[in-house]
Write a protein that binds this DNA or RNA. Structure first.
Length: 204
DNA sequence: AAACAGATCTACT
DNA sequence: GTAGATCTGTTTT
């Protein structure tokens, strides 16, 4: 039976749907919160204009250029964190963005971390998922086989008819690639939003 | 030292 | 369904 690292070393377009139904757990002094993944997106490093790694390695994205099985966490919009799982062969810089999931453990703690709302929204959206789990930049680069963040692969990979695909959310570039994968009919899947064109700050 | 970019969220209707 | 907030971490000079 292949281990976690063996699976994650595969091509990102195979790894991404394979992660659906897997469970990510974060254990802290506060307790544990676990999320069953229901929606992910594939990013293929230097081959993918939508990837943070497309223009090469920087300090921010260097984790993606490392070995599979580590967490790539980034910060955006001045207030949000999003988490990826690095996959593929080392140096390729491919990763799977965790877009949404169902909280299956630590509901009370997740509710405290998130602003009030229905439980189905606790980890619905990549930043919400991180917030519910208590994941931030301190977790960037962590090996998911060692904790405190651990990934348990679904024992049975979802049958193809339970997996839907579509364009990735919020991207201007490579918006045509249907590299978003989700479990069909899951209420925790985030709402599709096309990229928004925001006004550039005036330069004077 | 300064400018930039932003793989989103919440609130509001 | 949609607008607007948000403001830091990152990159570049």
């Amino acid at each position: 039976v292949p281990g976690l690292a063996d699976v994650l070393r595969g091509p990102v377009l195979e790894v991404a749907p394979r992660l659906l139904g897997s469970v990510l757990t974060h254990r802290t002094d506060q307790g544990a919160v676990a999320v069953r993944l229901t929606e992910v997106e594939a990013y293929d490093g230097g081959q993918d204009p939508g990837s943070h790694a497309f223009r090469g390695s920087t300090r921010r994205n260097q984790v993606m250029f490392g070995p599979a099985g580590h967490a790539y966490v980034y910060f955006t919009y001045g207030m949000h964190h999003c988490m990826n799982i690095v996959c593929g062969s080392e140096g390729r810089a491919s990763a799977v963005l965790l877009r949404a999931g169902e909280v299956v453990e630590g509901l009370d703690l997740a509710r405290v971390r998130r602003t009030s709302g229905p439980d189905r929204d606790l980890a619905r959206g990549p930043a919400r998922l991180c917030r519910a789990l208590g994941v931030d930049l301190a977790h960037n680069g962590l090996d998911l086989s060692e904790g405190p963040l651990t990934l348990d692969l679904a024992t049975d990979t979802p049958p193809p008819e339970q997996i839907s695909t579509g364009p990735r959310v919020g991207l201007r570039l490579a918006a045509d690639r249907p590299w978003r994968f989700w479990l069909t009919g899951e209420p925790t899947v985030s709402v599709y939003r096309p990229a928004t064109t925001r006004p550039r700050k005036r330069t004077g």
